[in-house]
Design a protein around this nucleic acid. Structure first.
Length: 681
DNA sequence: GCGATCAGGT
DNA sequence: CACACCTGATCGC
């Protein structure tokens, strides 16, 4: 639970995700996402009153967050004062003190956070440096490297402070199966159950919170079955979500809720009250999404646990794991880091101890082995030096971006002047330069997610038994791709693979009792254990979780080892209302620019500057769209949006192996030309 | 009657 | 061992 009090040291006149106490005096408000614990005070009468007499105060958030927020009548009074900002479109915001008239400008950029629909991180740039407030986030390894706007001039931006979601910043939570793995597992289970008969139904026991939508949409997409929910009006302007939900109780997948739902489920009664269809009784299983985590050495990803005759737990996390947090922070390498959350059972000092070595001041004394998350960065710098970067320095040197009022350093800054209406007037500046080098660096970084690859290869022979029967062509492909982020492997394929492998999964109540299905068990008997309990004690898995858990007959492990890249979830969909017909110009512009920049191959620094974005340069929309639609999520159903690196090439296995060898032997890796570098090494 | 806080639940 | 809620009790305005 966030303990962030709303204000950042560098910019104390703005408040983020807190709206009480001191925050009542803020010049501007920011909301990272629509979860209640980030909305404290947001509908309090004190703030409402302040708003009535401070007409220049606004709340800034993503379009989706605005939509979700305003669906609730309790927040409707904000309507005229919310300014939604497109993701990845730097925007200048005036911070005015209404008493003194004192004014300061700040540039804010929303970056996708992968936590729930509409969730963003805020990157602020102003006179006191650049700071990043992450809100809550779930970003896979390497995802920061793919965010263009975290880069500038070919390197990671000089970020003074990061205000970080440290929910799982504890080595215990070393790894959490990826979204793709979790989804594949759940999909397989749901598929195997509901395909038994039209009377086999699944209840997804979800908490009342945004964040499960990608689960619903993907299940619906894959299975052709809409998900029953209590309410869907908040998604009325998000067709990519809306189409997969229904209020018709006749469907086979339910995510509806009721206070006595758990009880109901035991009697094959769904929370919405139905127990039969066409007078034929239903057969119900429940699946409860919960976070599961694994130790450092474990490559196990058993994402489904059977907890009872007809109940399951499925791995699901809204937050980044320990290793994901470390990857993220070490990539950014800020001067300071402030944890937003102190995980239960640990202390602020312990969290700081973990995070501090990932910050900049500690880099000098960093020894020997660099986790590959670091190498991404090292290479970026190296690349710069190859390309006559005058400012190159082995250690990140503060490269202050003084951004007083003119914001010419930004390629696409939207100036936000006094705004009265809902939609701010956006004035595009066309003075910025294209950030060619940042494209290059992310292009490289895209497939150097080596840390994971390395450890994975250690256990490479480990293939789930159930996958061994699969199409021999498909499987090696899966394995080969497994080491790199996947842009071209989507759900459809990977989940089919998993799904097919899991035919006889849950026992059918018709057949009598539990069949104790043996989908996968821990083949090598390594220390990952699963327990199923009937007490209220929570079930969890850890690498060291072997203290006395006896294997129980009704325990099921579902191991989903195909590595569906998380990026499959992070694209398209619900970031904006009306997503389908409004791909924002800003993003388009960037894509176009990137394409141009990259296709001109390795350019010197000066040449970058000559590439000036302008509205007139736009390529016709039809030509741009394919670029956009190369994103994994061909069915437009996920909730988050992280563009993959424009023009990124999918690395080939042999190139990577080559690279790994070099790394292993400690050879230096000089990357001179992007296109052929991996062949050359 | 409302909100804030806490305890307890899922 | 978490999270993001929900409910209900109590207190204060």
């Amino acid at each position: 639970m966030s303990s962030f009090q709303g204000q950042m040291a560098e910019y104390p006149t703005i408040s983020i995700d807190r709206f009480d106490r001191e925050n009542l005096r803020a010049r501007a408000y920011f909301l990272s996402h629509c979860h209640k614990d980030h909305m404290k005070g947001l509908r309090a009468p004190t703030l409402k009153r302040r708003l009535e007499c401070s007409l220049k105060v606004h709340l800034y958030c993503s379009p989706v967050t605005k939509e979700l927020l305003l669906t609730s009548p309790k927040y409707r009074f904000w309507e005229k004062r919310i300014i939604s900002l497109e993701v990845e479109a730097p925007t200048q915001i005036p911070l005015v003190d209404e008493a003194s008239g004192e004014k300061e400008d700040i540039v804010v950029t929303l970056l996708p956070a992968g936590h729930c629909p509409g969730s963003v991180m805020f990157l602020f740039q102003g006179n006191n440096g650049t700071v990043l407030y992450t809100g809550d986030f779930r970003l896979a390894k390497g995802e920061a490297a793919r965010m263009d706007l975290l880069h500038s001039g070919g390197r990671v931006r000089d970020i003074q402070s990061v205000y970080l979601d440290t929910t799982f910043c504890d080595p215990r939570f070393y790894q959490i199966p990826s979204r793709g793995e979790c989804l594949s597992g759940i999909l397989a289970l749901v598929r195997s159950w509901i395909s038994r008969s039209p009377y086999h139904v699944v209840w997804l026991n979800c908490k009342a919170a945004y964040g499960y939508e990608y689960l619903f949409t993907n299940l619906s997409e894959e299975l052709g079955v809409q998900v029953h929910v209590d309410k869907l009006d908040m998604f009325r302007n998000m067709p990519d979500i809306l189409h997969h939900l229904t209020t018709d109780r006749g469907t086979q997948i339910h995510a509806c809720r009721h206070p006595k739902a758990e009880e109901y489920c035991q009697w094959n009664k769904l929370p919405c009250g139905i127990t039969s269809k066409n007078k034929i009784p239903l057969h119900t299983i429940s699946i409860k999404p919960s976070t599961m985590w694994f130790g450092e050495r474990s490559r196990k990803t058993n994402v489904i646990v059977r907890t009872g005759e007809s109940s399951y737990r499925a791995c699901f996390s809204f937050h980044s794991s320990y290793s994901e947090i470390k990857d993220f922070l070490s990539y950014i390498s800020p001067v300071n880091v402030y944890p937003n959350v102190i995980p239960v059972g640990t202390t602020l000092d312990k969290v700081r101890e973990i995070l501090k070595p990932l910050c900049r001041s500690s880099q000098n004394i960093e020894p020997k082995y660099k986790p590959l998350g670091k190498l991404k960065r090292a290479r970026t710098v190296h690349l710069d030096s190859e390309e006559d970067d005058l400012f190159d320095d082995p250690l990140p040197v503060p490269l202050r971006h003084k951004l007083p009022y003119q914001v010419t350093l930004h390629p696409d800054v939207i100036l936000l002047t006094a705004v009265q209406q809902n939609q701010p007037e956006k004035l595009r500046q066309s003075t910025g330069c294209c950030e060619l080098e940042s494209m290059q660096s992310s292009l490289l970084a895209n497939f150097i997610d080596c840390e994971e690859s390395n450890s994975e290869s250690e256990e490479e022979p480990e293939v789930p038994e159930s996958l061994q029967d699969l199409d021999p062509v498909t499987l090696p492909q899966q394995k080969a791709d497994a080491d790199v982020p996947q842009w071209e492997v989507f759900f459809k394929r990977s989940s089919d693979v998993t799904g097919e492998g899991l035919e006889n999964f849950p026992s059918s109540t018709e057949t009598g009792r539990s069949q104790s299905p043996q989908l996968f068990s821990d083949s090598d008997g390594e220390s990952t254990h699963i327990s199923s309990q009937n007490s209220s004690q929570s079930t969890h898995i850890t690498e060291q979780g072997s203290q006395g858990w006896d294997s129980q007959s009704d325990t099921v492990l579902l191991s989903s080892q195909d590595r569906t890249g998380d990026s499959a979830f992070l694209n398209k969909g619900a970031h904006r209302p009306k997503a389908k017909d409004s791909i924002p110009a800003s993003q388009m512009e960037q894509n176009v620019l990137c394409s141009k920049a990259i296709s001109s191959d390795v350019k010197s620094r000066d040449q970058d500057i000559t590439i000036v974005p302008s509205m007139e340069e736009h390529i016709p929309e039809e030509k741009r769209l394919p670029n956009h639609s190369t994103y994994p999520d061909s069915h437009s159903s996920s909730d988050f949006e992280i563009p993959s690196t424009p023009e990124a090439e999918l690395p080939k296995q042999e190139h990577l192996q080559c690279l790994y060898k070099k790394l292993a032997t400690g050879e230096s890796i000089a990357v001179e030309k992007r296109k052929c570098s991996f062949l050359d090494i």
